[in-house]
Amino acid sequence: MSKVAKWVGGALAVVVGVPLALFGFFWVRGGAFLAAVHEVPAEPLVLPADATTLSRGAHLAAVYCGDCHADDFGGKMMIEDAAFAMLPAPNLTRGLGGVAGQLDTAGWVRAVRHGVGADGRALFIMPSEYYVNFSREDLAALVAHLAQLPPVDRELPARRFGPVGRTLAGAGPLRGGFPVLRIDHTAPFPEAPPAAATAEYGGYLARTFGCAACHGENLAGGPTQGAPEIPSPNLTPGDALGSWSEADFVDQARTREGEHMPWPALAKMTDEELQALWRFLASLPAQPTNPSPA
């Protein structure tokens, strides 16, 4: 074999071998990450049984859980891509295929507040980094309602990450979708302001609803985290919302539809909650829309 042929063969081996070796490394690393069991504390929670609190829990579940887990809480598929992931939002009831039978009160707390499933694995795109902002009373009301949901028989495919998703989990980019990595698991329960049409209570709603996930920590919008090609509106008075009225905002929340904004969940808020949310947004300092990263 000539020296040129040997050189070409060696170069091809490097060109092909190095990417394959990296893929193999991240594949194994991703599998270990996805299978890891997370030991997190579960704060003691006494579940109420009075009708008023259970009604509050039903309202919270409708607003915060129904968009992903379906209005009957029987779950639905969120992602169906064999190469990336098969990802169900689980059936939360005790029906066929449901997870409620696997969860005691501590298990519900770990799932909702800490982003850890019944098997100890990290939950993916579960907004626990925002639900950790629930007060003890609101979390107790929510869990009490979820624990007694009527059964819905709906079996969904198990969570499975395909070669692309598993490799991205190993390489790092996908890890932003696992809130267990970002939560302060020792943080105490925050106090909720009195439920009223106030900016203070609106701030509590914005924190628990997770507005910052898309609109940025300063709520000034711009490129959406994880999907920069999708612009998020500026929610401060520094852009279009500065010309809106409270009535405009409530009307948009009640009637608007769109693919990327959880309008159906927002529409389930009470008038008082929407007024509070608007008054919080209107109280923010006006800021220019966040720029695209350089």
Rank of each mutant, 00 (worst) to 15 (best):
M1D: 08
W7L: 14
V16D: 01
G17Y: 06
F25T: 11
F26V: 12
A36R: 11
E39C: 03
P41V: 01
V46R: 12
A49V: 13
A49K: 10
D50I: 03
T53N: 08
T53F: 08
A58Q: 15
A61C: 01
A61V: 00
V63W: 14
Y64S: 10
D67E: 07
H69G: 03
G74Y: 07
K76H: 04
M77Y: 02
L92P: 04
G95C: 13
G95A: 14
L96Y: 00
L96T: 08
L96D: 06
Q102T: 01
V109L: 02
H114R: 13
A118L: 10
D119E: 14
F124E: 00
F124L: 02
I125M: 10
P127F: 11
S128R: 09
Y131K: 08
V132H: 09
V132C: 13
S135R: 06
L139G: 13
A140M: 05
A141S: 09
L142W: 02
A147Y: 04
P157Q: 07
A158L: 14
R160V: 11
V164D: 08
G165F: 05
R166K: 14
L168R: 12
G170D: 02
A171I: 07
P173N: 01
P173T: 00
L174S: 06
P179Y: 02
I183L: 00
D184N: 15
A197V: 09
A197H: 07
E200Y: 14
G203H: 09
G203P: 10
Y204L: 02
Y204E: 02
F209G: 09
F209W: 09
N218W: 01
G222E: 01
T224L: 06
P231E: 01
L235Q: 09
T236K: 09
S243W: 10
E246D: 02
E246N: 02
F249H: 05
V250M: 08
T255Y: 12
A265S: 15
A267G: 07
D271K: 03
E273K: 04
F280Q: 05
A282K: 10
S283C: 11
S283A: 15
N290T: 05
